[in-house]
Nucleic acid binder design. Structure first.
Lengths: 217, 217
DNA sequence: AATCAATAAAGAAATTTTTCTTTAATAAAA
DNA sequence: TTTTATTAAAGAAAAATTTCTTTATTGATT
């Protein structure tokens, strides 16, 4: 009887997951000067069924032309807009270790609408330093800076055992969404959006397929 | 009529994806000395339905006891084994930039059965250096080293535009699985396992939920 | 100009995944 | 000792997602 996740979701999550790849592909074609692209081409690139592509794109305002395909520029424009990549959202990152640094260096996040305004840590040797032009502050300065900047997302890249503490802090100063890179699951109020991104799930999938192959041999 | 992905898969992929979290949770309980855990507890931690947990665990040899739950130690042992985390597989990493470094620093990969034996790059300033005890070689030394070491997985952390080149190289010296961290989709023979891990899909999901919230207000 | 082939789109069907329901077991409480 | 409440397990039902089928359109070919 209890609802574990409110799914008043018009667009299926698998669709949302595929869309950034469509976008990246279309951006590449645009650079190469290709004007139109068919669902077959996209599907071939993605290794999926062509009707999947048309279904996915049908959730947007993009319309294709029979015998021609979709306008590449339209895909780029509409999809960026649709995915929320064309407005810049501000984020704070907590945990300026190796993974945190990697995210700070990733220009793709900027390109896709996420600006990391500041980073936080408790390690004195990193505090005060700049990583790819983003300053690292002590975690205690968190609250004050959050007031100044319009930050809606918190990124957690601390060790798993500190994830909940950081999450609580983020919730306390009114963050709307949390991107959790630790394997730990965090408890937050219902209205806070949490996205868990854990590498080990991907590793498990690879191993599963590898062993499946072994079984078949 | 064409098969886009052979799914002779007994265990659903969503299940495989959740399992590493069950494992991590159980490991935590084990450290705390808890002997049994119920599906309700696990479900509560994961924010999912309890029957989902029992279904997932039913794919393994783990059996629970009514009114008691599952033995924590059994979950840890069986799940590690089941997910392929208890045998060490060797990997090469190509692209020792910030993301590559982050992976090299991640002890979790070691813990979950993946040993990165060597890293490769073309940047002269990183070649010869050691990142967390893993040596960085020039990409040309790839083939020779692959002969020596029993490496079955290749990890791609180069810029997207070089992904295909690296993938081709990996296929050429007989890698079985490729873990692709670039947004680019790579073309490889059917028998090679490819796992794409792209951050931007997660970003898209967060943005989608954020905007959905806005729509509801 | 007529035919052919490639394509988008819409809807139906199939498949997969999740959630619900029932049953049986058993620890804890009365 | 009996009752109650909690739990795993199995199967049914529901929901979500993917794939298949049909139709209509239109550029390219003959």
């Amino acid at each position: 009887m209890v609802q574990y996740s409110k799914k008043i979701q018009a667009v299926p999550e698998p669709t949302i997951r595929r869309m950034p790849s469509y976008l990246a592909f279309a951006e590449g074609l645009l650079r190469k000067g290709q004007q139109f692209v068919s669902s077959t081409q996209i599907a071939n690139y993605m290794n999926i069924d062509p009707t999947q592509v048309t279904k996915d794109l049908s959730y947007t305002t993009i319309v294709g032309k029979t015998r021609v395909g979709y306008e590449v520029k339209a895909i780029v424009d509409v999809l960026s807009e649709f995915l929320g990549f064309s407005v810049m959202d501000n984020a704070f990152l907590v945990g300026a270790g190796s993974l945190g640094s990697a995210l700070l260096h990733d220009s793709g996040l900027n390109h896709f609408g996420l600006k990391i305004e500041a980073a936080f840590d408790i390690n004195p040797s990193t505090i005060g330093r700049k990583i790819n032009d983003v300053e690292v502050f002590h975690i205690d300065q968190f609250r004050d800076l959050a007031q100044e900047l319009n930050v809606i997302m918190g990124i957690i890249t601390v060790p798993a055992e500190n994830a909940q503490t950081v999450a609580d802090l983020m919730v306390a100063w009114g963050i709307k969404a949390i991107w959790n890179f630790t394997p730990a699951r965090i408890k937050v109020p219902d209205d806070i959006i949490v996205q868990n991104t854990t590498l080990y799930s991907n590793l498990a999938i690879i191993f599963n397929k590898l062993h499946q192959d072994k079984r078949e041999e």
